[in-house]
Design a protein around this nucleic acid. Structure first.
Lengths: 122, 122
DNA sequence: TGAACACATGAACAATAATTCATATGTTCA
DNA sequence: TGAACATATGAATTATTGTTCATGTGTTCA
């Protein structure tokens, strides 16, 4: 009744390396943290949002600027900015009727650079 | 007929900062690269794959090991390993009927660390 | 050789997410 | 105040993706 070989339900094979499994299991970050990490990367996993972030690397921009730069509708951009905002990746300031967005994170640039390194690596 | 104000189709607003738009546009990485980057992050945007990668940080593992560690079916793991493989994030070696997977990238660890930093940042 | 095993994979189904469309909110200015 | 504008947002639609189920492939060993 221990966690030794009661895995038949989830995996048809016998446990090959129980010691390794146990060790890795004990070293894994907790479930919630991994879930949050996946959620963060999910935000980066869309071309529109990638483009928005890349644009904001260069300059603070209003929603309309971004829409024109990307050749997309204001609504689509606004929806995606909402996602970026709730992931705390961008911040905004209001100036009259115009809302300016800018990056709000010191890690994104590094993450993107590492990402670019990976995809450029033959 | 220049690119000045012919954007009415994609964005209902007038161009607010044409200079900024032009400058940012010229500095944006090319479309294909951005698409590839999004594809890479899409791979990280799933809890199962995140868990697999975290497990492989600790040790080389066979498919069954991973399945047991994560409490998931062999098939589900195998499908996801395929995704990780085609993103060149994991490599494998065959030893008899057992296939061992391990990480095949020097950037992932950094990307994950930056990601963890972001989500831990209050 | 053939049974057993570890793994891979195609198809189907379920769940999630991106864009569009219509419209609402909040600000400016005449 | 009310018209015009920049942005936000809910609902619907379409597209994408993860898991399961059934089965195929490749290896070992009796």
């Amino acid at each position: 009744m221990t966690s030794n070989s009661s895995h038949k339900d989830s995996c048809s094979c016998n446990v090959i390396h129980q010691d390794r499994v146990d060790r890795v299991k004990s070293k894994m970050p907790n479930e919630e943290k991994l879930y949050d990490l996946a959620d963060l990367f999910k935000v980066f996993g869309d071309t529109t949002r990638i483009k928005i972030i890349c644009a904001l690397f260069e300059a603070e921009m209003c929603v309309c600027d971004i829409a024109v730069t990307l050749g997309m509708s204001q609504s689509a951009i606004s929806h995606q900015l909402r996602v970026l905002k709730s992931a705390r990746l961008v911040k905004y300031r209001r100036d009259g009727k115009i809302v300016y967005y800018s990056l709000d994170d010191e890690h994104v640039k590094n993450i993107f650079d590492q990402g670019f390194s990976h995809i450029s690596h033959i």
